[in-house]
Lab assay of single mutants.
Amino acid sequence: EETVVIALYDYQTNDPQELALRRNEEYCLLDSSEIHWWRVQDRNGHEGYVPSSYLVEKS
């Protein structure tokens, strides 16, 4: 079962390993094994790492 997370803030990045976030957008959580950086996928299928503190699990 996939976990959906919501971005609390915008996040901009130039790092190809990371993914930009848009506030209030939903993302699919792929990997939360790292404490500070979670791997997520956006609705267009793009994947990357984002700061975990910018996300909240959708209830």
Rank of each mutant, 00 (worst) to 15 (best):
E1F: 06
E1A: 07
E1W: 10
E2V: 09
E2I: 13
E2R: 06
E2F: 14
E2A: 07
E2P: 04
T3G: 05
T3S: 11
T3A: 10
V5M: 10
V5C: 11
I6L: 08
I6C: 08
I6H: 05
A7S: 07
A7K: 00
A7C: 03
L8C: 08
L8T: 09
Y9F: 14
Y9G: 09
D10I: 00
D10Q: 02
Y11R: 12
Y11W: 14
Y11D: 01
Y11G: 01
Q12C: 06
Q12F: 09
T13Y: 02
T13H: 07
N14W: 05
N14H: 15
N14G: 09
D15M: 10
D15W: 06
D15K: 15
P16I: 10
P16L: 07
P16N: 07
Q17W: 09
Q17V: 08
Q17C: 06
E18C: 08
E18D: 08
L19A: 03
A20L: 08
L21N: 01
L21Q: 01
L21P: 02
R22A: 12
R22M: 14
R23N: 05
R23D: 01
R23L: 06
R23T: 11
R23P: 05
N24K: 09
N24L: 10
N24D: 13
E25M: 08
E26I: 04
E26H: 06
E26M: 05
Y27A: 01
Y27D: 00
Y27W: 00
Y27Q: 00
L29D: 02
L30F: 03
L30Q: 09
L30R: 07
D31I: 01
S32G: 10
S32M: 08
S33R: 10
S33E: 08
E34K: 15
E34W: 07
I35E: 14
I35P: 14
I35G: 14
W37H: 14
W37I: 11
W38Q: 03
W38E: 01
W38I: 02
W38A: 09
W38S: 09
R39Q: 11
R39E: 03
R39H: 06
R39K: 11
V40W: 00
V40Y: 00
Q41Y: 06
Q41D: 06
Q41C: 13
Q41N: 09
Q41V: 09
D42G: 07
D42W: 01
D42P: 01
R43T: 11
R43P: 08
R43C: 07
N44P: 03
N44H: 11
G45H: 07
G45F: 05
G45K: 09
G45L: 05
H46Y: 09
E47S: 11
E47G: 07
E47H: 10
G48T: 02
G48D: 00
G48H: 02
G48L: 03
Y49Q: 14
V50L: 01
V50T: 04
V50F: 03
V50G: 04
V50S: 07
P51R: 04
P51K: 04
S52E: 05
S52G: 07
S52F: 03
S52Y: 04
S52A: 15
S53K: 12
S53L: 06
S53G: 11
S53P: 08
S53T: 12
Y54Q: 03
Y54S: 05
L55G: 00
L55E: 01
L55M: 09
L55T: 02
V56Y: 09
V56H: 06
V56M: 15
E57S: 12
E57I: 10
K58S: 10
K58D: 05
S59Y: 04
S59M: 12
S59I: 10
S59Q: 06
S59A: 13
S59F: 07
